[in-house]
Amino acid sequence: MSDNIEEIQKSIKKYLIIGALLIVFTVITVWLSYVELPTHGLNILVGMIVATFKASLVALIFMHLNHEKSVIYKTLVFTVVLVFVLFVLFYFSKMDPLVFDGFYKLSE
């Protein structure tokens, strides 16, 4: 974040635009969720891409992550890697490509 008065004055307009963008994308998310894509998995993928885009707007502009100090970037990169590991390994422990059927499927 900068302490420069002029820059802050300029960024006020930016905040309003981003707020409007977020609302527009919320409408898009809702609309997309009613569109019947070939599989529901695609719906989820598209929805998550839009949500990630919105989230990165919030993080970059509102939370000033577009110009932050290196210590914070290092911490966050580490954290994001770990969250990603968590997601991926949780996914693979249900969807093991070497053993296809989950262990708790009721169907069998």
């Binding site: 390994l89 693979f92 422990s93 093991d96 490509p97 070497l98 053993v99 262990f103």
Partner: peptide, 14 residues
């Protein structure tokens, strides 16, 4: 972490 869980049957790849 999951080397505590070999016996859970979490899958070969894991």
């Amino acid at each position: 972490w999951a080397h505590h869980m070999y016996l859970t049957g979490m899958g070969t790849m894991m």
